[in-house]
Design a binder for these strands. Structure first.
Lengths: 362, 362
DNA sequence: TGGCGTGGCTGAAGCGCTTCAGTCATGCTG
DNA sequence: CAGCATGACTGAAGCGCTTCAGCCACGCCA
C-alpha cells in the first residue's frame, strides 16, 4: 500500500547509502549521475540498497546548490492565474514552452502577477529558477529589475528589448494593419476597436486619447497602433474611431465592450478585436442586440486560436504561431542556460485568415 | 538603463558583503532575515553596501538547503498544460491555490502530465518543492509513488484517499444525482451522458460497458455513477443510457460528443454533461442540428463556471465551489508544511443551479 | 622486467547559506 | 560596587550534494 510518510527528520542521504554499501559518497553520487564511472554490478548494488533504505535519489536542492543550476525556468505573468488562463492564447504559448522545457528535464516555476502588471519583486528574488521568461509584462515592470538584480538570463515574449535579454515576438503591428486594411478593402470605414488592457490598472471602459498614448504593454500598443495608423492612412481620423479597453482578454469582457461599441451612433459597421476571445464576446454581443454577423457588422479577431474555426460564424482573424512562440522561448531559455549569448530577436510572422465573420459593407 | 548581466561567474555572496562591511557573515544574514538581531544603523549600512555591490539577497537555493525548505508547492496535473487550461474549472482552482500560496511567499512549481495521466516520476523526483498537490490524477499514478518515495507531504484534490495525505474533494456523486433527479422530475427518462475522460488513454467515443467500469479517475467515476445510479433507481437501465466519453473537457470535444448523442434514435430528450465546458459544446451541437434548447433537448452541466450564467441559454448546472477548492488545498498544503498532521478530508458541498437550459419534457 | 595506460574508486574541497551557542561590552539593580 | 540581565555581534558546524585530482591494482607492450 502506498503511504505518504512526511516525516522528514531522518531521511537517508547519500552518506547513509554509501555507509550501507561500504563505498564512498562519491561513488553513490556517480551511480546516479555517471553510470560509466563505476562497474555496473556495483551500481546495481547501490541502487538496490538505496531502494531498500527508502532513498529516493539525490536531494534536488542540494544538487542544485552543488551544480549551481536549479533546472527550472521561471515564467512571469502579467496577471493572476485565473485571468491569465481564461486566455487560450497564453495557454498555448505556455504549453509550447512547457513541452520544450519538460523535454529537457527542467521544470516550470510560475510567478503570477498582481495589480502592478507583474510578479512582486520578492517573489522573483526567491524563485528557484536559473532563467526567467517574461510574458507580456508592461515596460519597466519591477519584476524585470529583480531579474536583472539577480543576474539571471532573461527571455522576453511580446515585449520591448532589454539589453542582454533574448526575445521572441510577433509582428503585431503588421498583423493589426493587415486586419484593418482588409476591412477597409471591404468598404468598412466606420470601424471600432475592442482591445485588452492598455494600462495595468485594471480599468475597463472607453479609451480616451490619453489612455491611448504611452501604452506600457507593447502588444496592446502595437495592435492598437496598427489599427489606428492604417485607418488614418485611409483618411479615418483616429479620434473618430471608438475604442473600448477591456481590462482583460476574455469573452465576457469582450461582450461588455462590444455592447458599448455597437450601441454608439452611428453604429460601427466593423469591429477590430485585439484577441479572438474579445471577438467571441463581440459575436455574442451582436447576437444579444439582434445583429447578424457579418451582415450587420463584421468582426475580426487576433490570434487564431483553434476555436476561431468553430465559432458561429467562424472568425476572420490574424493568425500568429502561438505554440511556436512558446517553443521558441523555451529553446532560447535553454540556450541562454547553456551559456549562449542572446541571439537576435526571433520575429514570428502573422497572416490573415479569412472566414465568415466579415463581409463587404452592406 | 536596465541591463541583464547573466555572467554568473563572479556574483557576490554573503561573504563578499560581509568582508566589504567588515562584519561576520552571520550578521549579514541577519540583516536580511532577522532585522531585530542587529542595530538598524548597521543593517542599513549592510543593505546599502549590498546594493552597491550588486548583491541581490541570499541565494534561494543555498537558503533552501540550509533551511531545508524550498518555499514552493508542486502542482501535479493529469495532462499537458494546454489541455489543462482549456478547462476553466482547473484555472479557477489553480488560481485559488496560487493566491493562498503566493500570500505566504511560496511559489508554484507546475508539473504537467503526459499520456500516463500524470507527471513523469523523474520530474517529481527532481522538483524543488516541499509539498505536492495532486489534481485529479488517476488512481495509482506513478507520480504519486514518486511523491511517497521522496517522503513529501501530499494533498490530493478530487482523488481517493492516500494514507498520510490530506484531501479536499467535492460531493461529485451527490451532485450528479442531483442533476439526474432534477431531469427525472421534469419527466426526462430518455437521458444521455456526456463525460470527460474515464481512462487516461486519450480515447474519445461511445463508452462501452467495459470502459464504464473500473474507471481510474475518481471524479469521472463518481459523476458517471451518480447519473447512472439515479437513473437506474428510477427504472432506467444503465445499458440503455448512451454515454459518450470525451478525452478532455473542452467545448469542441463536447460538441463532437453531443452531436453523436443527439443523432441517436430515439433522440435523448436530455443531456447530462460532466462539465460546463462539455455542456457548452452540447449547446453548440444542438444549434448545429437545428434543435432548440430547452424545447427540444434539456442540457445540464457541472461546475457552474462563471460563464454558465451567460451562455445561450444560461446553463442549468451543478455548482461546486471551485475557488474554495483551490484555497483549501493551499491551506492544507501550508499546514502540512508547518508540520501538521493531515486533517480529516475537507468535503465541499454542491448544489443545483436552475437556469434556462432545462425544461419539462415536451 | 620496467614502464605505462586504464578502469574503478576515494578524499576532500567546495556550493552559499542558516543557526545556535557563545563572547563581550554596556547599563541597570540593589 | 558586585552581580546580572540585555543587546549586538561572531565562530563554526552543518544542510546534502558534485567534482576533480589522485590513488591503486591490473594487464599489456616492448
Amino acid at each position: 500500500m502506498l503511504t505518504v510518510d512526511s516525516d522528514r527528520r531522518r531521511r537517508p542521504t547519500l552518506d547513509t547509502v554509501a555507509a550501507a554499501v561500504g563505498v564512498s559518497r562519491a561513488t553513490v553520487s556517480n551511480a546516479y549521475n555517471r553510470p560509466d564511472q563505476l562497474s555496473s554490478s556495483l551500481r546495481e548494488r547501490i541502487l538496490e540498497t538505496a531502494r531498500s533504505l527508502g532513498y529516493a535519489g539525490p536531494d534536488p536542492v542540494a544538487r542544485s546548490l552543488a551544480t549551481r543550476s536549479s533546472a527550472a525556468v521561471g515564467f512571469m505573468l502579467p496577471q493572476g492565474l485565473s485571468g491569465a488562463f481564461s486566455d487560450p492564447a497564453l495557454s498555448i504559448v505556455l504549453d509550447g514552452l512547457a513541452s520544450t522545457v519538460d523535454g529537457h528535464d527542467h521544470s516550470l516555476v510560475l510567478m503570477p502577477g498582481d495589480a502592478t502588471g507583474g510578479p512582486r519583486p520578492s517573489i522573483v528574488a526567491r524563485a528557484q529558477a536559473d532563467v526567467m521568461v517574461a510574458y507580456s509584462l508592461p515596460d519597466s515592470a519591477p519584476a524585470l529589475e529583480a531579474v536583472a538584480a539577480r543576474g539571471l538570463p532573461l527571455v522576453v515574449i511580446d515585449q520591448p528589448v532589454l539589453p542582454g535579454s533574448a526575445r521572441v515576438e510577433v509582428q503585431d503591428y503588421v498583423g493589426a494593419s493587415l486586419a484593418a486594411s482588409f476591412l477597409l478593402s471591404l468598404g468598412h470605414s466606420r470601424c471600432a476597436v475592442l482591445t485588452f488592457a492598455l494600462h495595468p490598472d485594471g480599468v475597463s471602459g472607453p479609451a480616451s486619447p490619453q489612455r491611448r498614448s504611452a501604452v506600457p504593454f507593447r502588444v496592446s500598443r502595437d495592435r492598437l497602433g496598427g489599427y489606428l495608423d492604417t485607418l488614418e492612412k485611409a483618411g479615418v481620423k483616429p479620434d473618430n474611431v471608438p475604442v473600448w479597453e477591456a481590462r482583460g482578454s476574455d469573452r465576457e469582457l469582450g461582450r461588455l465592450g462590444a455592447r458599448w461599441l455597437l450601441t454608439r451612433t452611428p453604429r460601427p459597421s466593423a469591429l477590430l478585436c485585439a484577441s479572438d476571445q474579445l471577438a467571441f464576446g463581440a459575436l455574442q454581443a451582436a447576437r444579444d442586440l439582434n445583429l447578424t454577423v457579418p451582415r450587420d457588422v463584421s468582426v475580426v479577431g487576433f490570434d487564431d486560436v483553434p476555436e476561431a474555426a468553430y465559432s458561429d460564424p467562424p472568425l476572420t482573424t490574424v493568425r500568429q504561431p502561438l505554440a511556436d512562440k512558446g517553443r521558441r522561448a523555451g529553446e532560447l531559455a535553454l540556450k541562454l542556460l547553456a551559456g549562449g549569448r542572446p541571439p537576435r530577436p526571433t520575429r514570428l510572422d502573422v497572416s490573415l485568415v479569412e472566414r465568415a465573420s466579415t463581409a463587404p459593407r452592406a
